[in-house]
Write a protein that binds this DNA or RNA. Structure first.
Lengths: 213, 213
DNA sequence: GTGTTCAGGTGTACGGCGTACACCTGCTGC
DNA sequence: GCAGCAGGTGTACGCCGTACACCTGAACAC
């Protein structure tokens, strides 16, 4: 049932996932689902557990702790990208399931094993935010090639009104003139800030940083 | 009408905000609202514009660019905290309104004025993510004192199952034994990662970092 | 074999939602 | 005096989650 729900959400989007639709796919009456989950929230929790279950376990320790963390987080990212609805659902949750807590715990363990203090690790986890689960909420990530390129007139108005934005967008357009797709390289952006954070953490660790001097 | 919607969401929460309820508050029939907004999405967009409008404009440049950015982002944070629903609604949006774009543009301007290259600024904006608007998606931020402290037995089970999590939570509990409220200091956590990022950006700027060598 | 239990499927119904569509009202400018 | 129009009204549709009472058939004890 959870598999069916995940598959349905993958195919038709999370907004189209209703108890009724899911029941229909399963060839069953809507209320039958309630013998397996208490309510829709619990269904969503279960679906997230499936996704989190797809994340690779921590790699055997070798070299820098940052490599291990990086690798795992990129695995999480891959899982989240396979199920585009998962990040939005995750954001809407108010309490973590045991499966998610298990993941968080092992993630914390990777920092601790890397030599970060309890104190630093705590703040590090906060700083990572949703990145710990492989996604960052890019405000208004534009789905590729959704909007048609604006006509020259409105483009000129845009440039006048939002000079800094247009400075960046023209730079991007120029940079990947050779590449097929236009727009930002989400993977690059994700790794950029991930590495920035991990390097920052490492510097604090070396300095023996503490929040209470 | 937008003010009424914002006030209603502030009081009763975003989930309780329906076109019907809002109409009722305004002493009007639900369909009357559709003479002012095309649909509920547009209403939500308008409400966000109100919130974003509450953010202070950039402070007059003085000293480090980081101070100016920091100050503005903390102002955004205050606005977002006044309207707890705003961050969740923001996350659900797919396209920015002109008001939000204006804000983003001026934010980019602050980085550019600070001496960051177009290239660096672009990635910096991505790295900031939702922090640019004053919030970070803390996964599962626990509302203060929502859950009762678990009985000793389940606490012991928790500690056994999630050793690293409990290591941190006991540390937190110990640290603010003197303070009234327990739990994390969200403001501290926010500023911790904000400063970590800003300092990271500044280092890259000094080094003349570029994504295309 | 008979009766009990129970996991799990069924059918009906309720109250909520967003909103399409046709209609009405009262003010404005000519 | 009247057209135009901004804005409020009433009805209705199709969707949603889910409460509640009911049914079915297999597992099992005796």
């Amino acid at each position: 049932m959870l598999r069916a729900a995940v598959a349905l959400a993958d195919e038709t989007g999370i907004d189209a996932l209703s108890m009724r639709k899911l029941a229909q796919v399963l060839g069953v009456v809507p209320m039958a689902l309630y013998k397996h989950v208490a309510n829709k929230e619990e269904l969503l929790d279960g679906m997230l557990d499936v996704v989190v279950g797809e994340i690779d376990p921590p790699a055997a320790a070798a070299g820098d702790w940052r490599d291990a963390v990086r690798q795992r987080i990129l695995s999480a990212r891959r899982a989240l990208l396979r199920h585009p609805w998962a990040s939005r659902v995750l954001e809407s949750r108010t309490a973590p399931t045991p499966v998610v807590m298990q993941y968080m715990d092992s993630m914390i363990g990777m920092f601790r094993t890397g030599g970060l203090s309890v104190d630093l690790t705590h703040h590090v986890m906060h700083a990572m935010g949703s990145r710990i689960l492989g996604f960052s909420q890019e405000l208004f990530a534009t789905p590729p090639s959704e909007v048609a390129p604006p006509d020259p007139e409105t483009a000129r108005q845009m440039a006048a009104r939002f000079p800094y934005i247009s400075e960046i967008t023209t730079r991007i357009a120029h940079d990947d003139a050779s590449v097929v797709g236009s727009g930002c390289d989400d993977q690059f952006e994700f790794e950029f800030s991930l590495d920035l954070l991990l390097d920052g953490f490492e510097q604090l660790r070396r300095r023996g940083w503490t929040s209470r001097p």
